[in-house]
């Protein structure tokens, strides 16, 4: 079954500088999948568990967070906090009987790097393989 997933990416100001520099079209030319919607944050440390769950409530099939390298966060511990919250959402998804792989944390270098696009491509492939998120209730 082929489907176009809805993937919500939460990226910090520093890891997503590329989006500002290149714009959506530029990123698309670099290979950013259409399925990925970028949500820019000042810092991923600001992201709460409830915001990630809300993305699933709003119909996301997959969610990921792109923050600074764990030991090089611009705001010291922001991306480490985000990674912990992603883990909490993984546990919550597991409790709900949903694949925890639907949410992921990426620690990416700041500035212009292909890793930013590669993370999006990895999630696009992963979510396409998993299929639509059961939390949408469409299988009932």
């Amino acid at each position: 079954m082929s489907f176009t997933p809805d993937i919500q990416a939460f990226c910090c100001h520093y890891t997503s500088q590329q989006t500002v520099a290149e714009g959506r079209e530029g990123l698309k030319n670099d290979g950013l999948p259409d399925s990925v919607t970028l949500n820019r944050l000042v810092c991923t440390g600001k992201l709460q568990v409830s915001a990630l769950l809300k993305a699933f409530e709003d119909g996301a099939d997959g969610v990921y967070v792109a923050g600074c390298p764990a030991d090089e966060c611009h705001n010291m511990k922001g991306s480490k906090r985000a990674a912990k919250r992603v883990q909490a959402v993984k546990r919550a998804l597991k409790e709900l009987g949903v694949e925890p792989e639907r949410v992921e944390m990426y620690h990416l270098p700041r500035g212009f790097h292909m890793e930013f696009v590669e993370a999006a491509q990895e999630m696009d492939k992963r979510i396409k393989d998993l299929g639509p998120c059961p939390l949408k209730g469409e299988n009932k």
């Binding site: 409830s50 699933f56 009932k140």
Partner: peptide, 20 residues
């Protein structure tokens, strides 16, 4: 309050998964 927000979300998601 923060945990209320999370639990409410989990209940909505869990019930939606059951088609409710």
């Amino acid at each position: 309050e923060r945990e209320v927000e999370i639990l409410a979300s989990l209940i909505r998601l869990g019930m939606k998964k059951q088609g409710k």
